[in-house]
Structure formats: C-alpha cells, structure tokens
Design a protein around this nucleic acid. Sequence first.
DNA 1: ACCTGAACACCGTTCAAGT
DNA 2: ACCTGAACACCGTTCAAGT
Lengths: 206, 206
Amino acid sequence: MSDTPRRSAYHHGDLREALLDAAGAILREQGPAALTLREAARRVGVTHRALYRHFRDKEELLAVMAAKGYAELLEQARMELAAEDRRPEDRLLTIARVYLRYAVADPARYALMSGARLNVDGRFPELEAQVTAGIGLLNAELEATAPGVTGTALRDAGLTLWAAMHGVADQLNQGRIRVKPERLDGYSRVLLAPVVRGLAETLRGG
Amino acid sequence: MSDTPRRSAYHHGDLREALLDAAGAILREQGPAALTLREAARRVGVTHRALYRHFRDKEELLAVMAAKGYAELLEQARMELAAEDRRPEDRLLTIARVYLRYAVADPARYALMSGARLNVDGRFPELEAQVTAGIGLLNAELEATAPGVTGTALRDAGLTLWAAMHGVADQLNQGRIRVKPERLDGYSRVLLAPVVRGLAETLRGG
DNA sequence: ACCTGAACACCGTTCAAGT
DNA sequence: ACCTGAACACCGTTCAAGT
C-alpha cells in the first residue's frame, strides 16, 4: 500500500540483479524503445545515477542481459538434448525447436541478443564466450551427421544452420510467419528440416 | 567558402529527397545511432522543424528509406536474373548473391530494412508492397526448381530460403563471418547451396 | 506553401557531494 | 561502499508565428 520505494532492499549487493530483472521486464512488457536506464532505476526505486555503480554505461547493461540470455538458451538446449537421444538430424532439429521457442517467447530480448554487435573491440568477452559456446554445441551435433568432416566444412555448415534458425526467428517475430503457439514446433520442423537435410548431404560429400 | 546554409536550393520540392539522401549518408557513414532528424536537417541546411512538412515523424522517414532500399535491391536482382539464364538452382543462388552484396554494401541500411517491423498496423503499405514483391520474385524462381508444387509448400520453402539469406547477411555484418570482398560471392554460394539443394529436393517430394 | 523560433518532456552521462 | 542532486548536451515533437 505504501508508495515509498523500498530502497533498503538493495543494500546487500542485489541492486545489480534487481536492475537486470527490471530491465528485462521493461524489454518484455514494453519493448526496446522503453528500455531506458532511468526507467529501470525507477522500477527498483532508486535514482538513475545509482546504476552507474554497477554498470559502466547502458551498453554494458545490455551486454550483460544478452550474455545471460545466451546462457539460458544454451542451458535449455543442453537439457532438451540430454532428454532426447535420437538420430543426429533430429537432434539438430531439437536445437532449432529450442532456439525458436526461446526467440518467440520474448522477441525484444531476442532482438537484443541477435542485434547490433555489442561486443565491438572485444569489450564484453563474457558475451562472446556464450556465443562461442553456442556455436560449439551446434557444430558438435552437426559433426555427428557426417563423422570425420573437416574443420572448415563443418564450420560453414554450422554458420548456415545458425543463419537459417536466426532468419526464421526474425520472420516469426516480425509477424511474417504467423503460427499458433501449439504449432510452432511442428512448423519449425517443416521450415528447417530441408536445411538440415541439404547440409547433412553436402557434408557427407554429395 | 561561405558557411551560410544554402536554403534557396530546396524551394522546388526537392527538400524531401535531399533529406532522404542526407539520412542515408548519415546511416552509411556514422551508423544508426547517429541518424537523428536534427542531424539530417543540419546536413541539408534547414531547421529540424522543416522536416515535419515532408514526413509525419521519424518512423515515416525510416519507412520511406527502407522501402527505397527494397526497391533498389529488387531492381538489382531483376537485372542480374535477366543477364543470366541458367538452371533454376543457379538462379536462386544469383538472388542470394545480389542479396548478400546489397546487405554488406551498407550494413546500417540493411539493418534498417530487416530490423524491427516498421509497418505495424499497416502504417506503411508501400514498404510492405516492396517486401511482398521480393517474396514473389523468390517464390517464382523457387517454383522453377520443382514445377507444380502446391502453394503452401512453395511459400514455406521461400520463407526458409529468405530466412537463410537474411541470417547469413546478419552474420556477415556482425563480423562473425569474415570474408574479403572479392570472395563474398563464392562464399555465399558455399553457405547457401546446401540450403537450395535441400529445399529443391524436398519440394520435388523427397 | 514552406520554413523558423521557442518550448516541453524526455534521454545518457558527468561532477560534486551526501551518509 | 553506495547512493543522491543538480547540471549538461543531446533527442523527437508540439505550438504559434513568420514570409
């Protein structure tokens, strides 16, 4: 009932987390244009200046959010892959399913993660590390479709598959592909199975 | 030598074009963050308020720029397709080559075109019309790879191919794929040929 | 018809200070 | 150590006016 901001809650080092949560909520609820440092600070009941104690500038806040997003996405992919254990092609489509669900669940967050490079000049190595881990996961699963492929061919195939997943994600989030949530998984499969097929055949030396 | 803005030049209805050119130059030279209405007005030597005579707001300026971009891209694709006349699969890869060259030539412009949906609520039908024309071109060429395919299967394949091209474009522009300009065409082909292959095979009912 | 000037409500960021 | 207040240089947009 009180409308005084509860400042005392953030004296134990959790202001940083509170700010990240608030920023994430703004992004989800109101979109990227509404995500300002001042609004995030307002939400946790703190002066906008307090933020600079925990983040160097706005870009650093965004980079940390993006890195957390990639970590979450990777964890979900690993869990799904551990739960299922099928043909290599199906495992790739499992990754695609997790990826697209994640992208659609929070479009603005996905746009932040995949958008204009935040890591210019290697400023945020922890963000780049998450992306690299994601590429690694994808390539490992790709290799299983064609054991023994060379490094370059594998990397190229990984880039293509990632590009296709990203492209479909963007089309979904821009409303150019319209799918009911319960049909998303099936439709992802329809769109991406031909890509997986073409890649696997090419890798196996067609 | 004079430092007075030449106002008199824009009394014949070309201020609108001058503003679009200036905005495009800012985007190309300094990136999206630098593209403000005030800066565009400064470049053509006019008060920032003059802009509102020609564009309703910033979003409309951006939408017009994006629509012009799509028109240009489409024209280039049509010219290249007219010049070459080969197997259907190669014609699709020609589209991909034109698309990626265009995206890489001006990354910020491409980001504007492919980025957050400007056409919310059908506000800019001319922009949507360009996109639709692009999809039409792609689908027409796709159909040639598998004559007689049904509408849905064709549309899905078109979405997948477009998604893959867009994804590769983003990876290139974010520096995750590093290619020398003279190698871009060849590398586009390496990345996208497997996709075209998988799509063609799937369309032909594999 | 087309452009300008002054003002408003916002930003991110810096400086100097409070506890 | 952590947060605040006041200020600066920017935005996009609106209102009322100039020619």
